[in-house]
Design a protein around this nucleic acid. Structure first.
Lengths: 246, 246
DNA sequence: AATTGTGGTTGACGTGGATCAACGTGCCCG
DNA sequence: CGGGCACGTTGATCCACGTCAACCACAATT
């Protein structure tokens, strides 16, 4: 056990078998027995302060990360300074999969609030998943899920109008909060309008206006980052029917 | 060589070790020895006629596919009929990874021309990649690459204007043709303007106009689907500098 | 050679969301 | 407690791209 290291690593050895996030995280669906072996895998935990990065584009890839507490955004940037948020991640979700392909990360992962992750050294993960079938299978599912999620975002960016995008975003957040035992209808967004806009391919003003419109129409109540969904059915209807711009 | 079998499966056993696509495909980077074991893995080949689907959204997931000849598009559809092309795939590229997460496919894979794929039964792939480290590693890289690619498309859809999108598309195609030993500057697109538009989040008219503009400016020569890139540097400049809409 | 169809181009016009700008609002910090 | 600052809202204007519509090119069909 080490101490000297500044703030980032704390000695608390992680333990998947004891963790209450099991059914949201990598171990989901694994047997009791396999789970015990997972404890070998997860190294230290690491704390990341709000606005700090867990890794940056270009960093050598060594580990993937499971979010133990808090939340993150990932973004990519273009040479000319433009950047784009590619995702928001919550507890139990896995960060860093982008690094496997080139052995260096291709995006930045930045904490939206003070957060904590479990560090999963990638070499060990590959090794252990050769022995533990359940782990291998779960890991593949996690990667595949990310691909499917990305396709959903591509659909959103490529063929939805502003209000539909925001509705989809809110419903998605609601669903993920629900899965974590929070209210489906009332939650606190950790990201700014600008970050939401970047993720949805819109300007922050457009996001703000769409929020206002939803509020006028009684679909949601918005107070800064505090959101209450008043009419989920209408939000869903907004997605399914009509419109469609490009 | 056989004839009887209808169209879909032909008995020709695939052989990765003999295949000239090795360095584009799943086996890339694997040792001679590991390669031999891969031959156990790949089952039959399957031919798909133009416009036919290799799999459809909802189909049970059983295998992934390596494109042996031809090309494909993948698309997702929304309940209301809108659809979005999520990618175009060429020889050596892998199709079907979306199916792992839910054990059923989440998009359609449709041949853009008469094509042939190698069928890689997924259960066998997992099994073999527990034994063959090189295979495991390559497979993970392939999945990760898909994630990184999708992030690139999200960036494109979320923050580029029409001409930038088309320039990025053309440069990407050029690069992939080059990797396959074709000319970087002259190639034949297998997809329609509508499909390009769907992929880029634009209407076909906008794609057509952007092509015309490029032609006027002497950047490319366009004759229907036949493209000649006359000034790759300017296309790249178009991407890197200025503009940026939303 | 006429016929039909699918895909592509081009023009005229309309609009959703970007841009620019002013003004609130809650929060941190001296 | 007041002043600065990041974040959010709202309005006025503009423009890139969507929409609608006409027309063209090429290929397959007869």
């Amino acid at each position: 056990m080490k101490a000297a290291v500044p703030i980032t690593v704390n000695g608390l050895k992680a333990s998947c078998s004891q963790c209450n996030l099991v059914e949201l995280c990598l171990p989901f669906g694994m047997s009791e027995h396999d789970l015990d072996r997972l404890d070998e895998l997860v190294g230290a935990r690491r704390k990341i302060k709000r606005q700090q990065s867990l890794y940056r584009a270009g960093d050598t890839f060594e580990a993937i990360y499971a979010i133990r507490a808090g939340s993150f955004k990932t973004d990519v940037l273009l040479e000319d300074g433009r950047d784009q948020v590619t995702g928001f991640q919550m507890t139990g979700e896995i960060l860093g999969l982008d690094g496997i392909s080139t052995e260096s990360h291709s995006c930045n992962a930045i904490a939206l609030e003070d957060s904590e992750v479990c560090v999963i050294p990638y070499a060990k993960l590959e090794e252990l998943s050769r022995e533990v079938e359940g782990l291998q299978h779960q890991f593949h599912k996690v990667m595949s899920r990310e691909i499917v999620r990305d396709h959903g975002v591509m659909m959103l960016l490529g063929s939805m109008r502003a209000e539909e995008r925001l509705a989809a975003f809110l419903l998605n957040m609601s669903q993920r909060f629900t899965a974590r035992g929070f209210s489906p209808a009332e939650f606190h967004l950790r990201m700014t309008r600008d970050e939401i806009g970047s993720y949805l391919g819109l300007k922050l003003e457009t996001v703000s206006r769409a929020f206002s419109r939803f509020q006028e129409e009684g679909l949601v109540s918005v107070q800064q980052k505090h959101i209450r969904i008043l009419n989920a059915a209408s939000l869903k209807r907004l997605l399914q029917h009509q419109s469609g711009n490009r």
